[in-house]
Design a protein around this nucleic acid. Structure first.
Lengths: 354, 354
DNA sequence: TTGTAAGCGTTATCAT
DNA sequence: ATGATAACGCTTACAA
């Protein structure tokens, strides 16, 4: 028994001494990597509990093994902002499932300007990183992670050469929903778009602005609609929220002479806002105006309506990313995945009555 | 130049060699802990970039320093479940701000049954942990963390002796909102409660069931109301959601002969559901029935109503927890904080008309 | 089944 | 301002 035990936390070495075995034996009792006689194990465990030793120090173990059991998730800006997107949470759940074989946890990292010049991403003890989306600092984060030689998976973004990415068929899906309203007979359609870039300006998306757009999702979903309606105008929202949808809806629906019979929103939240604006203006949905969304989350607040939308496989997206992380960590070649959204018909789209 | 450079990642030692300085000097160039001549720094940085060295290995640094820069947040069950509570996200944002001085990240850990016998909490390389609420496994998690000797802060839960906790004045706040409806003249009030225990049973909360209740928030908020209305019945929901609120609302409001003039819901989500149920039944809010919530989140889906509610300081809750973590890590004595909710009058409560 | 010993890549201390 | 050196606490070949 060593006098120091009061001041210092017990280490494996202390436990081994106390139990009268070697460190390796003690180690193995905790890791289970090798057979140990029951008698020995008992003795080690007893020694451990005597000394208040609760298991190997994770930092030391990490260093030795070269693994921390932590996967970084890089989100943009405030958590609130990232989680404002209702698909984030199911996606993270999927991610959790995907990396479950690693027994790893998720480290939430903010991808923020200003902090120090060293991002937390530089110094965080992680085994791999998952980058989400298309922030402006996306590139910077990617460089840091690559520089560290960490496996990276990108969700809904393009990291180029050899970096696995999980993508959605945004363009195809948008075209599908456009074809749906087209099939109903709509000829005059307007898009309510997600923010096309970081400028966060609300308003019509001019060709010029579109050319400068940096957010791929926005562009792809818009192009998809224009595959069907080449001249469909698009109104860019400031964010994906019900409130922004209301604003866009008022803007687009107030003038009876100059209003589309169908509004295709690029997110369900926006769509709900548009519906609310329509009802506020005394328009019936879908009789006077059809409204469709995108994402397929369950949205409250539209009364008896069921939103027509494209359902994106949010959980799968996360899980797929997690699975690729696992593969890379195992040294297997990762693969990019392109996931497919599916159409869900609700009650908010119908034949134009006008 | 060393031949191994292709196979092995460069280490600080390699960089030092390449730059012709000692390891300590090289180390200091990256940590900035000591003055280094510009010339030397240049040389080290040059060597680093030659070798593709991007900075000290976080695991090694962690081991040496005894700090990982990671704080664990222990959530119950699926992320989805935890984030279903709308106050979770602002709280986490507050937490992020609170631990900002540490430059630390948040590790999301699920507090799950079954996994292995070793929770991820046992092996995660973290500096401290924040436990949230009142899950059943709360105790187990707490024991693990304490066993590891990690600083712990508990949000909305009681960890006993010497563990700082961040609590809300739930009872007082519930009493306050009860006094509000009391002041309006209501004499017949029913509570729609959060789940009182893990049994997740929907229905009236009998004294017997209340005695077995494990969820403190539920109990405190109920007691608060009963401080004003000693005989107020309580209907326990299965979860905090709009849907559950609708179910409870239907249950409580359908029979005209037997319905309270005011419903006090223990969460805003439940309140919104109750309002929806009321409107579904042709009741006007607040003329026929007053409804109040709790939490003070912004809820969509109640049309022109503004919910009367108690606003809880969600961000502050998180930040306070973060600040206590920081204090403990600095060796300062932590303190428990009791935060105060404030009343927000909306349009959903009024004088009973009956 | 158990023991020996060599690192893992840093950082902190102390001296120069 | 820079350098030598000793930890930090563990895991894992390899040997016995």
């Amino acid at each position: 028994m060593i006098a120091a035990s009061a001041s210092r936390r017990a280490t494996l070495s202390d436990v081994a001494h106390e139990a009268g075995v070697s460190m390796s034996t003690a180690s193995v009792v905790f890791s289970g990597k090798t057979k140990v006689s029951d008698a020995t194990r008992e003795r080690v465990l007893a020694a451990a509990s005597t000394l208040g030793y609760t298991g190997p120090d994770p930092m030391a173990a990490s260093l030795r093994r070269g693994r921390t059991g932590i996967v970084a998730v890089v989100l943009e800006g405030q958590l609130r902002a990232a989680f404002l997107d209702p698909v984030t949470i199911p996606m993270m759940d999927g991610l959790t499932e995907g990396i479950a074989p690693l027994g790893a946890g998720l480290l939430l990292l903010r991808d923020e300007p200003g902090d120090d010049d060293v991002s937390a991403l530089t110094t965080a003890p992680v085994d791999a990183a998952v980058l989400i989306g298309c922030s402006d600092r996306f590139r910077a984060s990617l460089d840091i992670v690559r520089g560290r030689g960490l496996p990276v998976v990108v969700i809904e973004g393009d990291a180029g050469e050899g970096i696995p990415q999980i993508t959605l068929d945004n363009r195809e899906a948008a075209a599908e929903i456009a074809r749906h309203v087209h099939g109903l007979g709509h000829t005059d359609v307007t898009v309510v778009a997600l923010p096309p870039g970081s400028d966060r300006q609300r308003g019509l998306i001019t060709p010029d602005r579109l050319a400068r757009a940096t957010v791929e999702v926005t562009v792809d979903r818009l192009i998809g609609v224009r595959d069907v309606y080449p001249d469909a105008p698009a109104f860019g929202a400031k964010a994906s929220s019900i409130d922004e949808g209301v604003i866009a809806g008022r803007e687009l629906l107030t003038d009876p002479a100059n209003r589309s019979t169908a509004i295709l929103a690029q997110s369900d939240l926006l769509a709900v806002g548009v519906i609310r604006a329509a009802e506020e203006l005394g328009l019936r949905v879908p009789e006077d105006v059809s409204v469709a969304g995108f994402d397929g989350i369950r949205v409250d607040g539209i009364g008896e309506h069921a939103l027509t939308t494209m359902v994106q496989p949010a959980v799968e997206k996360g899980r797929a990313a997690g699975e690729q992380v696992v593969r890379m960590l195992r040294g297997e070649p990762p693969e990019s995945l392109h996931l497919t959204c599916h159409f869900r018909r609700g009650t908010t789209t119908g034949i134009p009555v006008r």
